[in-house]
Design a protein around this nucleic acid. Structure first.
Lengths: 330, 330
DNA sequence: CTGTTAGCGCCTTCAG
DNA sequence: CTGAAGGCGCTAACAG
């Protein structure tokens, strides 16, 4: 591959001059510039960002750690990040943990070894090892999706959103409300959303009967399974069900339909996430829009700010959300 | 940031020795090794892949150029790639064109400047400038989704798939078949799928009446619009509609429902892509599964092979597909 | 088993 | 306006 040295030789100037032309820095005579440009053109020379980075200590690459690469949330979030990052000349280096907690740490190290300028960690859990690792890292990190102590974080307001959802159901007159959640190890999605549900019911003196609270994993089938169980296990059937993600809700919808129960007449249903799908299932699913793209771009902004100004170390940003009330709910 | 030099000094050995223990290459006395490891531990030293790359001429990074970052197809494809690439220690550097053809070329250059070991181009169009650029590139490139002359490519068998779809409709007894396509600039999705439709109708002496062929862009609303137009413009209403993507089909579904026409009784509907959504709309949408993940991992394999063996320069791989016949079709 | 030496491709003073 | 020199952090002969 042709290097700056080759160009210099061919253009009959020094490497310095070539560098000046390429980077438009310092004085170069029009004459010399023309010669250099010509050779660059001929040879198809492309300067090595790599070598440059070694000198300048900047790679213009941001590492993004994802729990799962192929989910609607991930792709929205990454899209938002890319929008912001590309504006500033950064590119995204992907790292996928596949929900494996060990890999989170590995990837943190790996990205640091590649000398990325910053890391955005789309997090699903918080544990001491991870926090330790982050604090020992020499690269700025921003967390997205979980509130990490003393790490700048962009979070969704999971507790409030879930409270609002539950209250909405109650306002609509529902007194028997079922819940489909996920493991509490996921503080945001698992713990906070369930806590909100429980708190609001309690605050309204509403009971939670046997079978009304089900735990699932992040996919449609599991939501379906959970709903079936709820139907079987509950002595009194809920008139409304709150599922912590749209996919879970859609799974539940399948189960409800299969049991020949009417939505929303007999059971109202609401999810969270505003997935594309939610708008096109029948009936249209009520849900909460979390604005994932924006969360992504905000995380990117936070990170860029941190890179440039070494900003304070623990900015927190809580995203807004919107309830989307649609046909699945009366 | 601590460097190999610091470690060497602190451990009282030479940089070479440090390098040897880090990379587990060559002989090092247990004694020296222990000392080095200890210092590494203490300092949290992480070798710079960057500097290493400069010497070894390998970055272990693959550039992936996407037409759109936030689509189901993209995320599936990237997922497949990552699965294969991560096995071999490669990471993905993302580049998003947002369907801007100029950016394809820019990104090709940019990725080369970053000295990625290879590039996978998820392509939506083919033009001379692009082909030129690719051929002048010094980095191995694999195309995915379009058959690029003398570039190793992984393609879907768009023509056959669309033929099969059309034939299926005819076998089911449909003689009046509408079509919702996209711009022919997209050779795979726009041109080939439409050609298949036209060819098969011709081969069966079936007419294409006014209004039966509509052109849309890649989103649900546009599919809806196109279907509305079809309904308005056609003197005889088709009994089946073939949309070239699921999202278009789902848009069409909306339009058909809105017009109070029964699916599939009055109009049968089929798409392509096996999107998640297709399974959960009502009625369940018939479609074609293209196995995007596999396409991604195959593209990755092709590229890795090319990197390692400098394999021949124009392997073509045509992906299999499966018709998924569901409730939207009788 | 270990250290010395010489770059990889680029930028950046510092002298002309 | 231009070039020489030095070094970013690391590996890879080549001698000990």
């Amino acid at each position: 591959m042709v290097t700056i040295k080759d160009i210099a030789k061919m253009a009959g100037v020094s490497r310095t001059t070539v560098s000046r032309v390429i980077n438009n820095s310092g004085y170069v005579s029009g004459e010399a510039r023309k010669r250099v440009l010509k050779v660059v053109e001929q040879t198809g020379y492309v300067p090595s960002e790599q070598a440059k980075s070694l000198r300048t200590k900047k790679t213009k690459v941001i590492g993004v750690i994802l729990p799962k690469i192929s989910t609607e949330t991930s792709s929205r979030v990454v899209n938002g990040m890319d929008e912001e990052l590309s504006k500033h000349g950064y590119q995204i280096l992907l790292a996928n943990t596949n929900l494996n907690e060990k890999k989170e740490i590995e990837h943190l190290r790996l990205l640091q070894s590649r000398r990325v300028d910053g890391i955005i960690l789309v997090a699903t859990n918080i544990n001491d090892k991870l926090m330790n690792e982050i604090h020992e890292l020499k690269v700025p990190v921003v967390a997205l999706g979980q509130d990490m102590p003393s790490v700048p974080s962009v979070v969704y307001d999971d507790y409030s959103a879930a409270c609002d959802v539950t209250r909405l159901l109650i306002e609509k007159g529902h007194h028997r409300i079922g819940f489909i959640g996920v493991s509490e190890k996921d503080r945001a999605v698992g713990y906070l959303r369930q806590k909100a549900y429980v708190d609001v019911l309690k605050e309204n003196d509403l009971p939670i009967e046997e079978g009304w609270v089900q735990q699932a994993v992040f996919n449609i089938d599991s939501g379906c399974e959970a709903m079936k169980n709820m139907l079987i296990q509950s002595k009194v059937r809920p008139t409304a069900v709150f599922a912590v993600t749209d996919r879970l809700a859609i799974g539940a919808m399948e189960a409800i339909k299969e049991a020949n129960i009417q939505i929303p007449k007999e059971i109202s249903l609401i999810g969270i996430g505003a997935s594309d799908m939610s708008m096109y299932v029948t009936p249209r699913l009520s849900t909460v829009d979390y604005e994932n793209e924006k969360a992504g771009s905000e995380a990117a902004k936070l990170l860029i700010n941190q890179i440039n100004n070494g900003g304070e170390n623990s900015r927190k940003l809580s995203m807004k959300y919107r309830l989307l009330i649609r046909d699945s709910l009366i």
